[in-house]
């Protein structure tokens, strides 16, 4: 058992930050590894790399001429 509690940071606007290495189990049973010291996991479901955050939660402004 790990001696220290791991920190999981819920951000207001985007992902959850989880210290790694960590294995994520998806609803379909698929397992994804995230090995960075800190990993950003998508909560908004907009990431094209779900469950890894790709900043797709950001506000977008449309620029037209």
């Amino acid at each position: 058992m790990p001696a220290e509690r791991r920190e999981v940071v819920l951000t207001e606007e985007g992902p959850v930050l989880v210290s790694g290495p960590v294995e994520i189990v998806l609803p379909d049973g698929r397992r994804v590894t995230a090995d960075r010291p800190v990993n950003a996991l998508c909560l908004c479901r907009r990431s094209r790399r779900y469950p890894i955050c790709d900043t797709s939660h950001r506000t977008r402004t449309r620029e037209d001429s």
């Binding site: 800190v38 950003a40 790399r49 890894i52 955050c53 790709d54």
Partner: peptide
Amino acid sequence: HVEADAVHEQIIRR
């Protein structure tokens, strides 16, 4: 860099 900098953004800000 897509994935790394999504994390780095959070670490730099917070």
